[in-house]
């Protein structure tokens, strides 16, 4: 309304996003916006399209229509590795780490240098790499396991390792798909502590079912249902939304 008012710059602007698998619209005309340094949690019942949204943002799945703007760059036209290089990191639901490599090597591969074929041939494991790997390993509670092969880690430790692999990339937008699923109680607490530490200075998009955990960290919650937004706002607002209650408490 003011003259010269510029639309606010969002870190991530998803608008009109649709994807259909053989006629079935898993995500349907979805729009939402994530600000700098915001922690957004996506919740919703099974099959709501939560994981598909992350797949679309990181390029794993190609959108049928719509746009995803990250810092003004259109992600839907980019390849996965280019999206990573613009600053979007993604953790998968099941821990995906390289089991035939050590913790050190896992982290080293994620270190954002020497990502081309030639670059990786000439990559040197210098002091800055070692320092950074050790720093991250300490954050993810794996400092004394640097030379352990990843297949010897517990489920929770693998989850941490994957989070560490994202951290070392230092993304501006971190996307986590159920980061505490399958963890023991003590691991959960440690993960919450870890996430609270790493979400500084970046935006985070989390899918999570653990409501206690969501309440702890979320700035804003988006509720998805059948590929569309059912409700959006603070946890308090969403919790009291009759539509959300209906979906969650059954029909």
């Amino acid at each position: 309304m003011l003259i010269g008012h510029q639309p606010k710059d969002f870190l991530l602007a998803v608008s009109g996003l649709t994807v259909s698998f053989d006629g079935f619209k898993a995500v349907n005309d979805l729009s939402f916006y994530v600000e700098e340094n915001e922690i957004r949690v996506i919740i919703g019942p099974n099959g709501a399209g939560k994981t598909t949204v992350l797949d679309l943002i990181c390029g794993k799945t190609k959108a049928t229509s719509g746009s995803i703007q990250f810092r003004g760059k259109e992600l839907t036209k980019m390849k996965e590795n280019e999206i990573v290089q613009t600053g979007v990191g993604r953790k998968f639901q099941t821990p995906s780490v390289f089991e035939d490599l050590t913790v050190f090597e896992n982290l080293e591969i994620s270190f954002p240098r020497g990502r081309t074929v030639f670059g990786s041939l000439t990559f040197q494991r210098d002091q800055s790499v070692k320092d950074r790997v050790e720093e991250v390993a300490e954050m993810i509670f794996l400092k004394d396991k640097l030379n352990t092969y990843a297949d010897e880690l517990s489920h929770g430790q693998k989850q941490w390792l994957e989070i560490g692999m994202l951290l070392i990339q230092d993304p501006d937008l971190l996307m986590l798909d159920e980061p505490v699923a399958g963890m023991s109680v003590s691991e959960r607490a440690k993960t919450a502590e870890l996430l609270n530490r790493i979400i500084k200075n970046r935006s985070v998009l989390v899918i999570e079912h653990d409501m206690k955990f969501v309440e702890d960290i979320a700035h804003k919650v988006t509720v998805l249902h059948q590929g569309q937004i059912l409700s959006e706002g603070t946890m308090e607002k969403v919790k009291n939304d009759p539509k959300v209650i209906e979906v969650y408490l059954g029909h």
Partner: peptide, 30 residues
């Protein structure tokens, strides 16, 4: 080649192609 990071990326790729891709590498080029 085996001893460079490229050798480790090949091993990583064989196991978890997507994770390599989402670590910012063009899997196809490797």
């Amino acid at each position: 080649i085996r001893l460079t990071k490229l050798g480790r990326i090949l091993v990583a790729m064989r196991e978890q192609e997507d994770r390599v891709r989402f670590s910012g590498y063009s899997v196809a080029n490797f």
